[in-house]
Write a protein that binds this DNA or RNA. Structure first.
Lengths: 340, 340
DNA sequence: TTGAAAGCGCTAACAC
DNA sequence: GTGTTAGCGCTTTCAA
């Protein structure tokens, strides 16, 4: 069996309290410090987390509920988040709910029963009902990427300025003389979809015009979806002169569709994509992209949760943090001369 | 505060033992069963996992250490694995070590300290040294996708028949009359890379010939890597007439390189890729692919670990399970007529 | 079948 | 600064 604090006490001749205090960063006499350190090493003592948890009611574990693990935006956020959290000695339990509200609710319940100290959710259920068990249990929650208005004040959130992101991209195209701008969005009803659509419409409004309805395609944030949506856009009698695609996977799919259709970018069609510039670096050297600060999002979420976990005090300490995006100009768009 | 078993005891007038027994599936008098059930519901009782863990020394948690979360093969395995494990009430702690041996070792140590009941590793460190702490602690281990000979008999493993997979693909091309077959592999030194290379060479040997060294490109299992490797193959004075790419990301990158080079598949170059047919379905309708049973791998790993977790008894219960792959014939290869 | 009681290994008063 | 002690909430003998 593994050594316990009792063993340390026996070997060093000290009391349990002294040892416990030392292990938790308290001050003890230098001589005793040495004593304990030696015993810990010799006995290969490792604190029993179960006992500690039972006593402190903390698991030093956080739960993450996401809609889909096979999505680079999500995985990159998880990676940077996990990095920070683990440095602070928190384990991360990941639950993939496959964009299914039932599964999502189950996952939250499961995590609450596992007594996670905090919860990170990229919600599928737009009502936020799935989070009720965590709310009831008083578990701090941080929403990622998608805010739920019904949970305002009850949770923290880290999102990007989606409206601004879409505005910038669309405005850029409008300013370049395009007025038939295809828009490929994610699932209708999802927060980011709505916001990005809003930004697109805002930009059009600035230019005192309205896009044709058929230019706006709802898809599903997958590569297949992006491919299909682009195909659909190209199949219209009036083809768009530019397209704005609103996530990484769909950007990839859309580019493949363009490739297949032998449409030269930007000569025959202008293109603005989303995310993960570096991966595209080699492949489509000069794509103009809206870039989300993926690492910053992950870090921000982790720090936000750590703050909630630490400041057990105070009152309404929930924050909504909005990070800005960048429009990374490549050469995948061209300027259209308007007829005078 | 949450209700405890004591509360149930108080409300029902029963003893703790009876309640505990009932909660753990034991038999109690029907009348008492009712009593307990009602109390549990009314008090919203949920067993405290900490206390249970302290008593049983089980965390009902398993750790997963992987090289990279942003890889579809890995995430799809995790997803199907997590599904099964969670159904059995095990939480999954995921640690991404970014293909870094130091990080990998730290992750294992972290998980051992967290007292996971089992460990799943897709190893980066080819010596297997990182798993020593888990081995010492007697934590059952299942290796995924990559076997480590040094750990033979000490761990279970689930792999695919990589040699056979590469043989099939290469043989198929050789039989079609190709003899200049480019091969794009992952990182040199990695298990799957070696096995797939072996299969490729085996097939050539069957045909009593040897491939030119320059046809074999080691890359890194990323899209960028696949793109670059394909470019390099195409840049040679003698271009291959066929190419076999050995994972999903590189297949994507390689196809993009072909697209860019305006090379028609299969007219100008034959192509066999890897994995995830369904995603490609829409995009490259007729790609010939080696398909790994990703879901089966995840399931197999989960079941294997559950077995080890349950059969706490017996002796050498470790198994190495090899799953077979399929060569899914599309129309991305053509037959070359050999000069008579 | 049921209940009393003894811990699992740790933390945190509290008294010294 | 240190030691004693009383639990945290559960499981599990053991006796009834």
């Amino acid at each position: 069996m593994a050594a316990t604090m009792k063993d340390i006490a026996r070997v060093t001749g000290l009391g349990l309290a002294t040892i416990s205090k030392y292990l938790n960063g308290g001050t003890v006499r230098p001589k005793n410090k040495k004593l304990i350190e030696n015993a810990v090493r010799d006995l290969r003592f490792v604190p029993n987390e179960f006992a500690r948890s039972l006593k402190t009611s903390q698991s030093r574990t956080v739960g993450v509920v996401i809609p889909e693990l096979g999505n680079q935006f999500i995985t990159s956020i998880i990676t940077s988040m996990e990095d920070i959290l683990r440095k602070h000695d928190y384990a991360v339990i990941v639950c993939d709910c496959r964009t299914d509200a039932k599964r999502e609710k189950d996952a939250v319940t499961f995590l609450v029963h596992k007594r996670v100290d905090g919860l990170i959710s990229m919600p599928t259920d737009t009502t936020g009902a799935h989070l009720q068990p965590a709310l009831d249990a008083g578990i701090p929650i941080v929403l990622v990427d998608r805010m739920l208005k019904s949970l305002n004040g009850l949770v923290s959130a880290v999102v990007v300025d989606n409206v601004d992101a879409a505005e910038k991209a669309t405005r850029f195209l409008l300013q370049s003389g395009h007025d038939e701008i295809g828009l490929i969005l994610g699932n209708e009803g999802i927060y980011t979809t709505q916001k990005r659509r809003e930004g697109y419409l805002n930009a059009y409004a600035e230019f005192h015009c309205k896009p044709r309805e058929e230019l706006i395609r709802f898809s599903d944030y997958t590569m297949d979806g992006g491919y299909a949506a682009m195909k659909a856009l190209l199949a219209q009698k009036t083809q768009p002169t530019a397209v704005f695609v609103t996530n990484f996977e769909m950007t990839l799919g859309a580019m493949l569709a363009l490739n297949e259709a032998q449409l030269k970018v930007p000569d025959q069609i202008s293109f603005i994509g989303f995310d993960k510039l570096d991966l595209f670096g080699a492949v489509f050297p000069n794509l103009t992209l809206v870039k989300q600060p993926q690492n910053a999002i992950g870090e921000c979420v982790a720090k936000q949760l750590l703050r909630l976990l630490t400041d057990a005090s105070s009152g309404p300490l929930h924050q909504i943090i909005t990070l800005s995006t960048q429009l990374n100009e490549g050469s995948s768009t061209r300027i259209i001369q308007k007829p005078q």
